[in-house]
């Protein structure tokens, strides 16, 4: 750590904005979450200088685990240059003085909304997910004590009712985002609104994956190399989205593509949602 970096922090704030007690209590919650993969741990979510829905859960997790030697990357819908990503990155730069990056390979800590980078993660990296609704069973059971009981007793049949309805209505499982998974063969988990394209990346990932829901006050985690299985039926196995064209910028055929409207005549193009991956592929 060099003094030049430290000098850049905004005066009047504790390192990473939150006070040490709060960070410690969140870390205790995260330790529990790591100990019971996929299980939701309540925590006393704090007010952050931003509104709920903008990633307050993710920010608190990041603030609790970030250290001076970390290199932070923030992505929103796969891009490093959207308002939310830029602001969060700037926020941590201000209150921690840490290095930031847009490169997945350089980052030690990645806070994300809606995507997992295409570039495979490595051991030692930490992913932090912003979670709007942590409870996978909420759609079928409004009562919190009852969903807790359902988790405790592993009563997950009702979740399959939703998948059954998808197949019945659309001929296939149509859930495209926040596709429910079973963690370590025990707990059902919402992976946050990542596309189901990213679900396979959750499985046996070498990185530590942490999930924070600010408004709902819940933490959960996937320790490195945890099995994560997407729910499916034997005769309707889980599958990911595919595209019949490559990215028009980089030509990649293995990444998640966004559809972009480019003119007033209805012209469209398909490009990588992961901006870093797209640039790296273009360079090579």
């Amino acid at each position: 750590m060099n003094t030049a970096t430290t000098n850049l922090t905004e005066p009047g704030f504790n390192f990473a904005y939150l006070d040490e007690q709060t960070k410690r209590s969140i870390r205790r919650g995260l330790l529990k979450a790591v100990a019971i993969p996929g299980h939701q741990i309540p925590f006393s979510s704090r007010e952050m200088p931003m509104s709920y829905g903008w990633g307050t859960g993710g920010i608190q997790v990041t603030a609790s685990v970030i250290g001076k030697s970390d290199t932070l990357k923030v992505i929103d819908q796969g891009a490093d240059d959207t308002t939310n990503a830029v602001n969060i990155r700037r926020f941590f730069k201000k209150v921690c003085g840490v290095k930031t990056t847009e490169k997945t390979t350089e980052a030690t800590l990645i806070q994300t909304r809606h995507r997992i980078p295409e570039t495979p993660l490595n051991e030692g990296q930490v992913m932090v997910y912003q979670v709007p609704i942590p409870e996978p069973l909420r759609w079928i059971e409004p009562s919190e004590p009852e969903t807790r009981k359902m988790h405790a007793l592993e009563e997950y049949g009702a979740m399959y009712v939703k998948l059954y309805e998808d197949i019945t209505q659309y001929g296939h499982i149509a859930t495209a985002y926040d596709y429910p998974v079973m963690v370590n063969n025990r707990y059902m988990m919402r992976p946050s609104p990542i596309p189901r394209f990213d679900n396979p990346k959750l499985n046996m990932n070498p990185a530590l994956q942490l999930f924070g829901a600010g408004r709902e006050k819940r933490l959960y985690a996937l320790p490195p190399y945890t099995t994560v299985k997407s729910l499916d039926f034997e005769d309707h196995p889980f599958s990911v989205e595919t595209w019949d064209k490559p990215c028009e910028f980089c030509g990649a055929t293995d990444s998640y593509l966004d559809e972009v409207v480019i003119d007033n005549e209805g012209g469209r193009m398909w490009i990588c949602s992961d901006t870093d991956y797209c640039e790296e592929t273009q360079k090579s």
């Binding site: 079928i140 009563e155 049949g157 009702a158 399959y160 009712v161 059954y164 309805e165 197949i167 019945t168 499916d232 039926f233 034997e234 005769d235 309707h236």
Partner: peptide, 22 residues
């Protein structure tokens, strides 16, 4: 369950006990 189809209503108990073949 009024918000799911008749088939899902009947199938739920089967899914509860672990049937996973649509």
């Amino acid at each position: 369950r009024m918000n799911v189809t008749a088939g899902a209503n009947i199938g739920e108990r089967l899914m509860d006990i672990g049937q996973r073949h649509y």
